[in-house]
């Protein structure tokens, strides 16, 4: 399923990033980082209007030869980025969307934790296991 899941802070530094361990971790870091270009552009294109009703799911950010990168941005400008193997055609837009929703819910749970300081790296076991479930689900 997903090969890399990342949560990026409003200020664009990573809050959480996990990729499948067999692959070159650095490559995914770079991929997530470069995808922020498109996220930034999409956010600025949306403008200030319709802040309440806008779609959080940003869709496919950019395709590479081997991977597809999807994006999602919360109302507080926290970004979720998910990298999916290009060969995995089973994943349709709707599945990606629901995965992001799940991620968002889990992230909200993290934020609700009074011991979590917003802006710190996410070190939640619940969040971790949710991400793990997303990364192996279909594979």
């Amino acid at each position: 399923m997903a090969v890399c899941v990342a949560v990026i802070a409003k200020e664009n530094y990573p809050l959480y990033i996990r990729s499948i361990p067999t692959e070159n971790e650095l490559k995914f870091h770079y991929m997530v980082h470069t995808s922020l270009d498109v996220v930034d552009e999409k956010i600025s294109a949306m403008g200030k209007a319709l802040v309440d009703q806008r779609e959080l799911y940003l869709g496919l950010l950019y395709p590479t030869e081997d991977y597809k990168v999807y994006g999602y941005v919360t109302n507080s400008k926290v970004k979720f980025v998910m990298v999916v193997d290009s060969s995995n055609t089973a994943l349709r837009d709707n599945e990606i969307r629901s995965m992001f929703r799940k991620l968002h819910n889990s992230y909200t749970d993290v934020m609700c934790n009074p011991f979590y300081n917003p802006g710190d790296h996410i070190q939640s076991r619940a969040f971790d296991s949710m991400v793990t479930s997303m990364m192996i689900q279909v594979c």
């Binding site: 990573p14 870091h29 980082h33």
Partner: peptide, 13 residues
């Protein structure tokens, strides 16, 4: 660029 955005893994590399 990497430093200002706090991507420490990439910066280290």
């Amino acid at each position: 660029d990497y430093r200002s955005e706090g991507w420490w893994t990439l910066l280290t590399s």
